[in-house]
Design a binder for these strands. Structure first.
Length: 501
DNA sequence: AGTGCAGTTGACTTT
DNA sequence: TAAAGTCAACTGCAC
C-alpha cells in the first residue's frame, strides 16, 4: 500500500525512522503540509518560516536527486490528507512523534481521529529521547535515552520508489500573513549547512566551549550553533550525539579542553530531550506553572509598556538591551543570555512568563516548544523545585562583556559614554548624561529593589506546607535523577540522588 | 621573629 | 544556568 511520509520538524532523509519504515514496504509519497492556521499562532514568526522554508526546499532537492518529488501542500492537515486519499487511494500515514505547542497537539489529535474514521493506519516513530504520554517513569529515563541515542543512525534509504503528486509552490512569508520581524541576518538552512556546522564545531570552534559559551561575544562562535538545524530536523539529535561520541573517543587524553567540551556538549544534548519530555508529559505546562500554587504570583496579563520596552531593548540596562537587540537582529542568542532576559522579564518587570515567553518564542528561529516552555517556567521560578536564579544585569555585564564591546556594538546610543560608566550609565551626573547619551532611556525599574521584592514573594510562597508537598510531586513527575559524581563526597553520599531539574 | 589586624579568597550555605 | 551571606584560612603589613 502507498506510504505517505509526512515530514514535519524532521526535514532530512538520513536517520529518518518513518522514511525507513516506509522504504521497505511500498511506494512513497513524501509530504510536507504548510498549515496557514499554524502560522497565525502567537508564538511563530516570519523568521521561523523563512528558515523552515529553506529546509523544505533543501529536502525537496535531496528527494529530486533521488528521482522523486516532494509533495508540498498548503492547507489544513486533515483536508490535505483527505484530498490525497481521494486522488491516490488508501495509504499508510507515517511521521515522527512531535512534541509541539497546543496547536500542533490538537492538530495531531484531529489527524488521528480522521485516520481512525477512514481506516488509515497512522504510524509514528520516535526521533528524540522522548517518550509518549503523561505517565513516563523518570527513574529509568536517562538509561533509555542512552540506549535510544546509541541505536544506529540509518543512512538515507538507497533505493526508493516514489509516488508523484500534485504540489503547491512554497509560499513566502507574506503569503502566510507573516510580517517582517526585523531579522537582519538570515541564517542558512538545510542539510549541508547543518553538517558543516557540526563539523566546524567538533573540529574547530568547540575547543573552549565550556569557558566561552556563556559570553554573548565568544558564544557566537564557541556554541555549537546547531539549535535551529536540530529544531527543524535537518540534523538529528542522534547524529549530533554519535558524531560527538565518536570524536570524543578518538581524542587523546592530552586534549583536556576538547574532552571537557565534548562531554559538556553531550550533556546538553541530553538536556534537550529532558526538557521536551516535560512538555510531552504535561502539555498544560505551555500555559500553567507546574507548581499550581504559583498561579497568582504575577499579574495574569502583562503591563504592555514594560513588555514592549523589554521586547525592544529599551529597559535602560545596557547589557539587557544589547542582548535583546542582538536577539531581535539575529534570531539567536546563547543560553545564559536567554536565561537573563527571562529573569529580567519575570523578576524585575513582573511580566507573566506566558506573555514574555510568547514574545521570546517568536524571536527564536530555533523555537522548540518542548524546550521553550519548561525553560520559561523555570527561569521565572514557577516550577516550585528549582533554586530561584535572579540575574543581576550589571554583574552579568561585567562578567560576560567586561570590555563593553557587545554593549557598544548593539546600543549605539552609548557610544560616547566612557568605559567606567558603560554598564551603569545612570551613575553619570545628570548633566553629563544629558550630554553623553541623551537618547538612551532611563532605567524602567530599580533592579535591587525589584529583585528583593520578587524574592520575598516567592519565598513566602515556598515556605507554605502545601508548596513543599507540591514540589515533591513535581520532582516525582519531572525531576532528573542524576547520581552525584562529586568525588569529595563519594563516601558519604554515593547513593544519594542528586535532583536536578 | 612573632603577634595582631584588616582585608582577601574560597568553600559552603541560605534565600 | 544566580547572588548574597557566612566562616575559616590565608596574606600583607605595621609594630
Amino acid at each position: 500500500m502507498l506510504q505517505v511520509v509526512w515530514f514535519k520538524r524532521d526535514l532530512r532523509l538520513e536517520d529518518h525512522a518513518a522514511l525507513c519504515a516506509a522504504a521497505i514496504r511500498d511506494r512513497i509519497l513524501p509530504l510536507v503540509i504548510v498549515e496557514p492556521d499554524y502560522w497565525q499562532q502567537p508564538d511563530v514568526s516570519a523568521r521561523q518560516w523563512n528558515f523552515w522554508r529553506g529546509c523544505i526546499a533543501d529536502l525537496g532537492d535531496a528527494i529530486a536527486a533521488k528521482g522523486g518529488q516532494l509533495c508540498i501542500r498548503i492547507g489544513d492537515a486533515v483536508e490535505t490528507l483527505a484530498a490525497i486519499k481521494a486522488a491516490h487511494g488508501n495509504f499508510v500515514l507515517r511521521a515522527h512523534e512531535e512534541t509541539g505547542n497546543a496547536w500542533t497537539f490538537e492538530r495531531d489529535k484531529a489527524v488521528r481521529r480522521w485516520c481512525k474514521a477512514e481506516g488509515i493506519a497512522f504510524e509514528e516513530s520516535r526521533q528524540f529521547g522522548v517518550w509518549r504520554g503523561r505517565r513516563v517513569n523518570r527513574d529509568r529515563w536517562a538509561q533509555a535515552w542512552d540506549r535510544m541515542m546509541a541505536m544506529p543512525a540509518q543512512p538515507a534509504p538507497p533505493l526508493l520508489m516514489w509516488e508523484r503528486c500534485e504540489s503547491d509552490p512554497l509560499a513566502d512569508a507574506a503569503a502566510l500573513g507573516l510580517a517582517d520581524d526585523g531579522l537582519q541576518v538570515a541564517p542558512i538552512s538545510g542539510r549541508a549547512e547543518a553538517l558543516a556546522t557540526l563539523h566546524s564545531f567538533l573540529h574547530e570552534r568547540g575547543e573552549h566551549y565550556t569557558r566561552e559559551m556563556s559570553s554573548p561575544v565568544s558564544g557566537e562562535s564557541a556554541c555549537s550553533r546547531l539549535s535551529w538545524h536540530l529544531a527543524y530536523g535537518s540534523l538529528s539529535i542522534r547524529e549530533a550525539y554519535q558524531a560527538a561520541q565518536a570524536h570524543y573517543r578518538e581524542l587523546p587524553l592530552s586534549e583536556k579542553a576538547w574532552r571537557q567540551s565534548l562531554r559538556s556538549f553531550i550533556a546538553r544534548l541530553h538536556w534537550h530531550c529532558h526538557f521536551i519530555q516535560k512538555l510531552e508529559s504535561e502539555p498544560e505546562a505551555e500555559y500553567r506553572p507546574m507548581a499550581r500554587l504559583y498561579e497568582g504570583l504575577r499579574p495574569r496579563s502583562a503591563d504592555t509598556v514594560k513588555l514592549e520596552a523589554w521586547s525592544e531593548g529599551r529597559t535602560g540596562y545596557p547589557f539587557i538591551d544589547a542582548a535583546m537587540r542582538y536577539l531581535n537582529a539575529t534570531g539567536w542568542i546563547n543560553f545564559r543570555m536567554r536565561a537573563m532576559l527571562m529573569s529580567f522579564a519575570s523578576y524585575d518587570l513582573s511580566l507573566p512568563w506566558q506573555e514574555s515567553g510568547t514574545a521570546l518564542a517568536r524571536k527564536f528561529i530555533d523555537y522548540e516548544p518542548g524546550i521553550h516552555w519548561p525553560q520559561c517556567q523555570m527561569q521565572a521560578g514557577e516550577t516550585g523545585i528549582n533554586t530561584i536564579r535572579i540575574y543581576s544585569p550589571v554583574k552579568q555585564g561585567y562578567d560576560q562583556d567586561p570590555a563593553g564591546v557587545f554593549i557598544r556594538c548593539w546600543v549605539p546610543e552609548l557610544a560616547n559614554v566612557p568605559d567606567a560608566w558603560l554598564h551603569e550609565p545612570w551613575k553619570l551626573a545628570a548633566d553629563e548624561r544629558a550630554q553623553l547619551c541623551p537618547d538612551y532611556p532611563e532605567r524602567i525599574v530599580d533592579h535591587a529593589a525589584a529583585a528583593k521584592a520578587a524574592k520575598d514573594a516567592i519565598y513566602a510562597l515556598r515556605r507554605k506546607p502545601e508548596a513543599r508537598a507540591e514540589a515533591k510531586a513535581v520532582v516525582q513527575k519531572h525531576g532528573s535523577r542524576k547520581r552525584t559524581t562529586d568525588r569529595k563526597r563519594a563516601g558519604a553520599k554515593a547513593d544519594q540522588l542528586k535532583l536536578a531539574f
